[in-house]
Write a protein that binds this DNA or RNA. Structure first.
Lengths: 338, 338
DNA sequence: TTGTTTTGTGTAAGCGTTTACATTTCATAT
DNA sequence: ATATGAAATGTAAACGCTTACACAAAACAA
């Protein structure tokens, strides 16, 4: 059995309060005592029990992280950065992957409602907005702990959002492609999460403001059952066979963009001469294809740093901005000419 | 402030023991009482405090997961599967990313030694073997909780290993390439983790058993500072300019293989006609390049399922196999001819 | 009825900490 | 020496839960 603070106190011939003080770096301990206690601790290898500690402190020093699927390249990066940041500030993280089917939200109910966490981070915009019930859920959580949302906006007390201005980023990127002379741009997306909607809005806004005709015909939604790159590229092929010609594809994420590249390659379309392709997220996938993929970087690392900073501020009782917006930047590679 | 079991007991006009029993599904509660308590709980939205619960139960129902970098594609998948499996069995997971620099092992010391976890999972073979001191660390941990190691072998009491027979997988893949007529095969690797060593051994063994001449000259270690795909492919170009010709590249993981493909493309070498390329892990990257990458699948999902099953068995006091080995399978795509 | 199980519920101790408050020790000023 | 206050340490309650044990109620047998 593990040693307790009590065992240490006896061995060191002091009270448990003193041991606790040493452990917590209280200034009111004589140097000699501190050393004596520390020596015993080192010798016997005592480590505090954090459940007990949590009871005493009424805080777990733990943050819950909810994300749909931590094996998704983008989300995995986000989770990783968050984890690193939290750890650097003495917090642990409790990861919980909810999956995309929102009805199984009881899954993560467990975590949050067991309220051992001091705060909650929702990673990815797919937590927002599908149904009223879901939003209510976030509100309920925010009643117990501060809720941080990465990559989506949600206005409510005790809810803080850190995000990239996806709409604007997409607007600018689309405009840039348009201005370079490509006026028939296909927009490729799958699920319409919060940020998914914003991106689509950005595309639409850009096309509209350039008076592009009938761009709605070039908006291609990949069916839900097309998950693999191959299936997506097949779907694009099918879509292209029925739609009017296009010379640009803007995809809602890098994986879709890769599928677009595959589509072009299978159909003998040359990139970027006959077709420009643009991805989103600037993930490692951009380097894996040939030509390498132009993509929009949403500054994920900066966002996560800001998120943790905000969260710590909130936990410390400070007033913090409820919404922090970063702007994405276009990383030009070889699937585009501009 | 959150409600406690005490509040509920008063509202329901029963004792806290009864509430606790209801909560824990004890059979010795009258149906009427159970309903009364449940109604109150639902009405007021009580949720148990898991720190307190952990103190009572002397178990956190939490498993610590240690991995170097959860944003690595392979590790992220592993972590995800583990998380899912644990959750399905009522356990939570505490993720801790240690980074690759082992001297900062104090980082994860925190986690384990705070022993709130019921078990520990080490994800990835880079936890094993570099130094004696590191191994000692694992032994120390295993004295407190069962230690599960994914993807590496380590023989010790209370340590359980689940892994893929990387050596054999690599041996078979190399042999298959060799037998297809490609006898000058370059082996590309970066860090030599436990499984990294095994893979290299497998390559060597295959080359040796086929009496391939001077294959040691074709073993290419990427320097530690070559992290990006681009840097790696440049390094391969440089290596190739000095080495004798080769017509196959076997890489220790998919990312290295992608870099190999990039090398070929930059130098006008046609894949698979002039050069066959083989990756490892069968990650999503295999679908991103053109031609698509032949790779070895190490059955990660099966492994993780087995790991969790073993862990739960150990926690339940059952006798469990200390070592479970799966074998990888070659997934043939278009970077190879065989 | 009375005694004997069986079943359901309550009481209280314990889990390992933190910390307000009480107490002791010690240095300094008188 | 003695009083005084500061510094160091100890005592004990609290945190919210589980559970062994004690006890009461209900069900059954005689």
């Amino acid at each position: 059995m593990s040693l307790t603070i009590y065992d240490i106190s006896k061995k060191a011939d002091v009270s448990i309060a003193t041991v606790s003080r040493v452990l917590n770096g209280s200034p009111k301990v004589k140097e000699a005592t501190r050393k004596k206690v520390m020596d015993i601790i080192d010798e016997y290898g005592y480590t505090p029990n954090s459940s007990a500690r949590a009871m005493g402190l009424k805080s777990m020093k733990t943050i819950g992280i909810l994300c749909a699927d931590s094996s998704d390249i983008f989300l995995a990066k986000a989770v990783y950065y968050l984890e690193q940041n939290l750890q650097a500030h003495g917090y642990e993280s409790l990861l919980c992957c909810t999956g995309y089917n929102m009805d199984s939200k009881k899954n993560y109910a467990n975590l949050i409602l067991s309220k051992k966490v001091d705060g909650l981070i929702l990673v990815g915009s797919n937590f927002i907005g599908s149904t009223e019930e879901e939003n209510q859920y976030i509100i309920d959580c925010s009643a117990k702990v501060p809720v941080m949302i990465l990559n989506a906006s949600f206005r409510h007390d005790n809810v803080y959002c850190i995000l990239c201005d996806d709409m604007n980023s997409m607007y600018r990127a689309t405009s840039e492609m348009y201005d370079s002379g490509i006026t028939d741009i296909l927009y490729l997306y799958d699920v319409l999460s919060y940020s998914g909607k914003k991106k689509l809005d950005g595309y639409r806004m850009a096309m509209q403001s350039h008076h592009a005709p009938d761009y709605e015909d070039l908006i291609c939604k990949v069916p839900d059952d097309c998950k693999s790159i191959e299936a997506i590229s097949d779907y694009v092929t099918e879509f292209a066979s029925k739609s009017r010609p296009f010379h640009g594809i803007i995809a809602a994420d890098d994986q879709l963009a890769i599928a677009a590249i595959k589509y072009a390659q299978k159909n003998g379309i040359s990139i970027p001469d006959d077709l420009s392709v643009l991805g989103y997220n600037n993930s490692i996938l951009t380097h894996c294809c040939t030509p390498e993929l132009t993509s929009i970087d949403s500054q994920l690392e900066t966002q996560t740093r800001s998120l943790v900073k905000t969260l710590l501020g909130v936990l410390a009782g400070q007033e913090m901005p409820q919404k922090t917006v970063f702007s994405g930047s276009l990383i030009k590679r070889s699937t585009t000419n501009f």
